[in-house]
Design a protein around this nucleic acid. Structure first.
Lengths: 341, 341
DNA sequence: AAATTTTTGATTTACGTACATCAGAAATGG
DNA sequence: CCATTTCTGATGTACGTAAATCAAAAATTT
């Protein structure tokens, strides 16, 4: 049987009340006594029964998710997963609130973060926009001892406790190698399609992609990045024009959202033109396109895993508990036609 | 606040004791009363607080992991992860026992399973050997209402509650597509290296691999499968001989363990011979080989995820609770040089 | 040494559920 | 209608921890 508070009391030769004072850092314990108790805790290897403690405290974890508005399917999926988590809220003793903030709107994000100051909150998860003001606002929350987790998009050099998302540089590198290898030793041009170069994840993906391309596939030339702004129509016309103007394009890397337009453009040139295409985010559209051969590989991050991981980490951080690091590593999923879930 | 047993009692107009009798299916409740209570439970949407219930019951989950002996690195890794889970046992209210059984020894596996009958066990996880006797033994445990989860290797048409492992057919198909695409339109022979064709996962991987190869890459010819029996030395000599006897080999798929021998054989012919190699299981050896370019892709299943998932599922099944299906899907990891963890 | 402050102990209640006991009520049998 | 069986209610204890209260003991100050 695992040791309880009673065992500590007995081992330390003090009363239960004193043990409780030490465990919950309440005042009124002499230093020597406190040390005696802490020694006993270590000696007998006491571990607090979190479930029982939460029961006694009536503990709930008020969590806040700050997610961008915007209608690209990835963010839709993310909000869907947060809503799924809300359905499990009572079981998991969480109380999840969602705050929507316009995408890329730094002042709005900062305002949303600052509005949480002083509130009784067990954790904040945010899709970060990488700006100094956001970094500062996160710092203010952290200094108030509020656990902060970045979700999907990280914040460089910030005080955030954890990042629940993929390594975007590695994702870009992986895309480059897939595309490079799939194209064999062929010669030609590669088009990169991004949502916007203002987003950190897109910049990082491009950075990784370019690095591997330059280093390992010198026969493939990178064309200037096209910015589709996650807009299907704009994307479609950009790609269509690029393809008709440049017959040397043999590969496409789409590192952002807005793949619907890309797929439409591809279908238009499809039987004649041979193209190898790697895209990000598994959606209904990309899944279908992968199955019918319009695209060749999909890189994905599992929004459900990210949300659940963020919740676990926020709760653990709030309790000062350790997390299973390996379990919380968000993996880059590579989907080919054959291993779709 | 979420409703409690007291709320049910009030809503149904019965006493707490009666609610308890209904909830825990104890005898001594008239049918009409029982239905009244069940209706109230539905009405107010009561959900049992599992943490509090476990506390009251002093519940621990005695779990048994049946894993094969044998020294290949994947099984080592699996046992390591089970041991990690044992370290967390007290926190998670589990009491994990490991039973080792000689690999491929059906009678021994059946004996191990049957030995569990009648014991107070909250769940069994086994690396299944696909045989009718095993299927029957699993059926006996299931009919005793013991949750059974297959781990890594599944059992066809059995009564097991859950399978915590990857889809091996899909893994084989994925390997084929990777290899086929990496080889561009080239012409040549492909060697498949297996541990033993007696194992179901290996057979399934081969099945998926052959199917995609035949259908989509007709220029690549599959050579007869080499069985390395997970023995590095045997594997090395098999591969070395095959490579020297057949200069047409341009690709290798290693679908089992024993990659150390393969890597050694590859290194011996490396600078001269161009080979595209896809292997299974990320280990220290395959990781290094991936980084130095000896192999091109590693398919992997995360043993840690499998073990943790199996535990969650066994606990949930024992409690008659639902699992988050999406969370328990074990994914096939594809590692290239660039996305290693 | 007395007065004061600080520490400590003892005890109680609570969280939501499980489980046991016993008395009393209702239903059923004859 | 009484005896018997079956059901129901009331109540208490327990699980491991939190938190509060009050009294008693020790340490500190005057």
């Amino acid at each position: 049987m695992r040791p309880t508070v009673h065992d500590i009391a007995a081992a330390a030769g003090v009363s239960l009340a004193t043990v409780d004072r030490v465990l919950n850092q309440r005042p009124g314990v002499r230093l020597v006594t406190r040390e005696k108790v802490e020694e006993a805790i270590r000696q007998i290897g006491y571990i607090r029964d979190v479930a029982a403690a939460n029961l006694a405290k009536g503990r709930v974890y008020p969590l806040v998710f700050i997610v961008p508005t915007g209608d690209n399917s990835f963010m839709h999926g993310l909000r869907f997963e947060v809503n799924q988590a809300i359905l499990r809220a009572s079981i998991e003793r969480t109380d999840i609130r969602v705050v929507e903030v316009p995408a890329f709107d730094v002042p709005a994000l900062v305002a949303a973060l600052d509005a949480l100051q002083g509130q009784d909150i067990a954790g904040v998860a945010l899709v970060a926009t990488d700006a100094p003001e956001v970094r500062a606002a996160v710092g203010r929350l952290v200094s108030e001892r509020i656990p902060v987790v970045t979700l999907v998009s990280d914040l460089t050099d910030s005080a955030r406790h954890h990042y629940a998302g993929i390594d975007n540089i590695a994702a870009g590198r992986t895309a480059a190698r897939l595309l490079g290898r799939f194209l064999g030793g062929h010669d030609g041009d590669i088009t990169v399609l991004a949502g916007s170069m203002l987003v950190r994840d897109h910049r990082e993906r491009l950075q990784g992609f370019s690095a591997v391309m330059a280093q390992e596939f010198p026969k493939l030339r990178l064309l200037p990045v096209l910015e589709g702004r996650d807009d299907p129509e704009r994307t479609q016309s950009l790609i269509s024009r690029a393809l008709s103007e440049n017959k040397n394009i043999i590969g496409i890397y789409s590192l952002g959202a807005g793949n619907r337009g890309l797929i439409a453009a591809l279908k238009a040139v499809r039987p004649e033109r041979e193209l190898t295409v790697v895209v990000h985010e598994l959606t209904q559209h990309t899944r279908t396109a992968l199955l019918d051969g319009t695209i060749d590989a999909v890189l994905n991050q599992d929004a459900g895993h990210e949300v659940r991981s963020a919740i676990r980490v926020m709760k653990a951080t709030a309790d000062g508990q350790a997390v299973i690091a390996d379990q919380e590593r968000i993996r880059l999923d590579i989907f080919l036609k054959d291993n779709l879930p």
